[in-house]
Simulated assay, not measured.
Amino acid sequence: MAPTAKHAFLLNGLGWGGIPHHAVQADLDAGRLIGLAIEDIHSGELALPM
């Protein structure tokens, strides 16, 4: 999967952002990115209704 512009920005240290886990799994595993904990939202509990 080719990285999106947002993914490239995150890899180059330009801030933080929400991006689908599957799109960054290899970067998380390799230590290029780290996951951030959001206060009062536990892993898997964030729902964004449409």
Rank of each mutant, 00 (worst) to 15 (best):
G17R: 03
I19P: 05
G13S: 08
R32W: 00
G18R: 04
P3V: 05
M1R: 09
T4V: 10
I19H: 00
G17K: 04
M1H: 09
A5E: 09
A8D: 09
H42W: 06
A23C: 10
A37P: 03
P49L: 09
L46R: 12
W16L: 09
P49W: 05
A23H: 13
E45K: 12
I38Q: 06
M1Q: 02
A5Y: 08
G44Q: 12
L36S: 03
A8E: 08
P20D: 04
F9D: 15
G31H: 01
S43G: 00
M1V: 05
G18I: 07
L46V: 05
P49C: 10
L36C: 09
I19Q: 04
L14S: 08
A8N: 08
I38E: 05
A8G: 08
M50H: 13
G17Q: 01
G13A: 03
A8K: 15
L33M: 01
R32Y: 00
G13Y: 06
E39D: 10
A37Y: 02
Q25K: 14
R32E: 01
F9E: 15
G15T: 02
A26Y: 03
I41C: 06
E39R: 12
G35V: 06
G31A: 01
Q25V: 08
H7W: 05
L28I: 13
L46Q: 08
D29I: 07
A47G: 07
K6I: 06
L28H: 07
L28W: 01
L36R: 09
I19E: 02
A37Q: 11
G17E: 04
